[in-house]
Design a protein around this nucleic acid. Structure first.
Lengths: 165, 165
DNA sequence: AAGATATGTCAGCCATATTGACATATTTAC
DNA sequence: GTAAATATGTCAATATGGCTGACATATCTT
């Protein structure tokens, strides 16, 4: 029960750092999320982004339009399928991404330093196990570039049955 | 960097379980947060709740009014200071609280099982270290009922300097 | 009695999410 | 080659949950 509340407070403060920066640029959290995943997965398709963020295309549309209009993100048609709009961050987009990630990295790094090297692995595994089973493979895919079977794969192993989600 | 994204996905799914239940009751996340902390700290003052949630009284007002009108939360005047409105969950409120907490507890417990007993401590400490320094004492206070010096206190110790927040 | 404090409430604004309907370009299937 | 499916974009309306500013009330403190 304690962990539930710690997660609430930790996430609240984790989000607060970039929020302050975003406000200077006239952006909100939604812009941050979009920019983040486009930077991390250059050439992302719109449909993939929708699945990652789990929002509707209408919701994405507004923030994406702004990010494109202000030169943070570019679209290019797919080579194999020209219906697809592949998303790339411009230099300006990458710069903002880095600026937003910096305080979050600092916060995470500091907290990790206190937990030692095996601590980091335990914590990573914990987060992965917190993700819904259905999404887990997909998340591994997004984070590790397709190798769902990597060091993070096969999270809970055998005794996962009966607990769902 | 990986942890940043894992935190995003974990929180997203962590929130999704109660969201589905809340929708049946015509409530939103804001109601959940209010109900949660009132249940966890019976007799909470409005001002304390505002500080925990870090929202304005106007934002709180709307959801609190609904929760009171529908019989999930009660107000009683403070004994020493009758201006204060102390908040208590009714039986109905406690029932909903339990119903909302159940899937979250299940998810957390399952993830913790995989990390062993010392894993649980490492993870707790990690979350605590993720909270802004300014808020940390206050959070300990809220979570542990006043003993900021408990097993969770003094998080990062000495080498915390220079990293702020 | 005057001022500070705890709370409540009205009104309006903004960001971000939703649904439903429809438009366009392109690929795939028959 | 036409028809259907797909990827994307966009319009309009609506809901939630934040915000600011202004003001009201009850109660405590001085």
């Amino acid at each position: 029960m304690l962990l539930i509340e710690l997660l609430f407070f930790a996430y609240r403060d984790f989000i607060a750092d970039p929020d302050a920066i975003l406000a200077e640029f006239g952006f909100g959290r939604a812009h941050h999320r979009v920019l983040h995943f486009v930077c991390r997965r250059p050439g992302l398709r719109v449909a993939e982004l929708l699945e990652i963020l789990q929002i509707t295309k209408q919701s994405l549309g507004r923030v994406l339009r702004q990010l494109i209009a202000e030169g943070y993100i570019e679209q290019r048609s797919g080579e194999h399928d020209r219906r697809e709009r592949l998303l790339f961050a411009t230099e300006r987009g990458q710069a903002l991404f880095a600026k937003l990630a910096e305080p979050q990295l600092r916060r995470v790094s500091r907290a990790l330093r206190a937990s030692g090297p095996e601590g980091a692995e335990i914590i990573q595994q914990f987060f992965l196990d917190m993700i819904k089973q259905d999404n887990r493979a997909h998340v591994c895919d997004v984070l590790l570039g397709g190798s769902a079977q990597s060091s993070l794969g096969e999270p809970l192993g055998l005794d996962d049955a009966g607990d769902e989600t």
